[in-house]
Design a protein around this nucleic acid. Sequence first.
DNA 1: GGCTTATGCGCAG
DNA 2: TGCGCCTAAGCCA
Length: 271
Amino acid sequence: MPEGHTLHRLARRHRALFGGRPVAVSSPQGRFAAGAAAVDGMVLKKAEAHGKHLFHHYAPDRIVHVHLGLYGTFEEAPHPVQEPRGQVRMRMVGETAYADLRGATACELLSTAEVRAIRARLGPDPLRRDADPEKAWVRISRSKAPIATLLMDQSVVAGVGNVYRAETLFRHRLDPQMPGSALAREQWDALWADLVALMRDGVRRGRIDTVEKEHDPRLQGRPARKDRHGGEVYVYRRAGLPCLVCGTPIAHTEHAGRNLFWCPTCQPEYR
DNA sequence: GGCTTATGCGCAG
DNA sequence: TGCGCCTAAGCCA
């Protein structure tokens, strides 16, 4: 479930499992063989996430960069270490546990300058302390692009994926097609604050939950619908089902090649 | 067992 | 705009 909260959660886990100690790094599959060899046995100094990017710092100019893409996964297990199953791009073995990376879009060894370059093209990340939401506001307030497009643009806001996009727009009753420049400053401030709160909750729980108690189907005798995002949501992948707030069937369309969900009543059309 | 789908993104054209 | 990446889960038969 790789939106930003997943990567921050992984960074935290990797700090706990491997941080400050030597890590045996390998690439059973072979595609990351050279990079793995370059850091094998070194001490993991720092693990951090920015948006959907994960960085393992072993030394200056020896930083492993991971991007999970659509279906990359990290799987951890306690010792004893098992034979790799399937295509394991990178295996990290620590003192008590190990982790296998599969299916990632990116797993590469980078220099300090290359990491800086990646981070320079990312917008503020609601999950980072050093995030400056003003930078995002400058981009949004000057753009005619739909807010749905802007929220998913990693150079505007880093870490927001399709679920958080759909859910925060719903929670703030915003039409996904509304141009960024039409957003009021107060609306952006509220949206950012909500992203910070929801994504922090996502890191803590390891799933995306966005439904407020008063709208919780379980409290109204209806079954809560679970989905692969792992939590409970208002609109994401609920096309045709009744809105939890007003009962209107949730709408769905393709927006820039991605699924977009919204409630036509709760998120009235911007004109 | 096969088919479909996906929370992402870089690239070709 | 559409494809490819290379994976797992859900669904159907």
